[in-house]
Amino acid sequence: MPVARPVAAVAAVIALSLGVAACGASADDGGSGSGAGAAAARSGYPVKIENCGTSQVFDKAPSRVVVMNGASVAEVSTLLALRLGDKVVANQQSYGMSEFPGRAEAIKKLPTGGVKQNAAFDIPRESMIGLRPDLVLSTTSYGFDAKNGFATRDELKNVGARTYISPQGCHDENSKLTIEDSYRLLRDMGRIFHVSDRAEKIIAASRKHIADIASKVKGKKKPKVMMLFTNMSMGSNDFSSVVAKGIYNDILGKAGAVNVFADASKTSFADLSKEKVAATDVDALVVIAYQDPNPAAYAEKLFKEFPQWPAAKNHTYVTVSDSIYLSPDNDLAVERIAKKLHPDAF
């Protein structure tokens, strides 16, 4: 979920992008129903996806999927939500926790391919080629950059693998992500694996859930929220993992809150000094845990450091993990935040 590269590498691969279009084949006009065109129509293939300047054509559903790290769980969570875990031969994504029951455990059970990550916290070129993938998923373009020690999209194409960069990840910056991009990722995977019906059911249920919550908090006073990743550094100042823009703000808005630091940066994260943070009224904290088993402790630490905040005086904070970023479970983040900030509405 972040963008910078933990602590400079792992925490930065959270961004994404793309443009998508799927097209099915038309049936053979021969009338027999047994031609190649008719067979293609029945199978739903070929499927064509326009992704970050490349055309990815799928003649059948991938069966050897590799999921790169990207400091995200968006891609692997989407596959699991669509019941496609059996297609994964190597997964490098893990948040260690999840708002979705059983998700963290399901991710942990997936094969890792025996990969040893490189200095950029992901699958090195040689290991990737050796996995013999037919589809490689990356959160951003970073995962296919040769200078980072990774196999390029062209190299993977030469060994028969299709590649996919998630929504808004073409330029390795996720400041324009919204909940709609989570739905786009679901739809793309639905098309690629010919399970669009499953994707649409998840999307419809999510839309309804979010709409129901938004209606309950409509008209309520919106708390000013500071959102940040726990114990993570992505810049030069004390608070470099404070969220400024991206899907986080879309989720906050649906939950009846506003990001107090939304204008502090043009990119996803604001690199703030301690003085700036101290001088800002914060009504509530949203603490995002990435590989942190105790995010609540981080919230308590901040309250002791900034006792003047309304959030500290009222002890108001929410902890979240994977549902706050690109995810099939954004509705859970909306619900969790809304219930904490507007308990009287539920």
Rank of each mutant, 00 (worst) to 15 (best):
I251D: 11
A270T: 04
A278S: 09
V260S: 09
T267G: 10
N249P: 13
V277G: 11
I247C: 10
S241W: 13
N259S: 12
S241D: 14
T280V: 03
G253H: 13
G253Y: 09
A262S: 13
S265M: 13
T280S: 00
L272Y: 00
V258P: 01
S265E: 12
N249V: 05
A270Y: 01
T267W: 05
L272E: 07
D271G: 09
A278L: 09
D250Y: 05
S265P: 04
L252Y: 06
A262H: 07
N259A: 05
A257T: 06
A255D: 12
L272Q: 08
D263E: 12
D250S: 11
K266F: 08
V242C: 06
N259L: 00
G246N: 01
S268T: 14
K276M: 07
E275K: 11
S240A: 09
V242D: 13
G246Q: 01
K245L: 01
A279M: 02
D281R: 15
K254I: 03
V282I: 13
A279P: 03
A262F: 04
G253E: 12
A278E: 12
D263K: 10
D250E: 11
V277H: 08
S268N: 07
I247R: 07
V260M: 05
K266R: 12
G253C: 14
G253V: 03
A270F: 10
S241R: 13
N249T: 08
A257C: 03
T267V: 12
A279S: 08
N259V: 00
A255Q: 11
T280H: 04
T267N: 10
S268R: 01
S265G: 07
S268H: 06
D281V: 06
Y248L: 07
S273D: 05
V258E: 11
D250G: 14
Y248V: 05
K276C: 02
V277A: 13
S241A: 15
V277D: 12
L252Q: 04
A255W: 14
A244G: 03
D281W: 09
A270E: 05
A262E: 06
F269V: 06
I247W: 09
L272K: 07
S268Q: 15
L272W: 07
K245C: 07
A278H: 05
D263P: 01
L272P: 01
G256K: 10
F261S: 02
I251T: 12
F269M: 11
G253M: 12
D263A: 08
N249M: 08
T267C: 02
F261N: 00
A279E: 09
G256H: 10
I247K: 04
K245A: 02
F261I: 00
V243W: 03
V282E: 13
L272V: 04
V282L: 15
D263I: 00
S273G: 15
V243R: 00
T267I: 14
Y248K: 05
D271E: 11
A244H: 03
V258D: 06
V258F: 00
A255M: 13
F269D: 00
V277C: 06
K276D: 07
F261A: 00
K266P: 06
V260Q: 12
A255Y: 11
D271P: 04
N259I: 01
G256V: 06
K254F: 13
K274S: 11
I247M: 15
V260I: 14
A278V: 00
A270K: 04
K276E: 10
S240C: 10
A244S: 14
S273K: 10
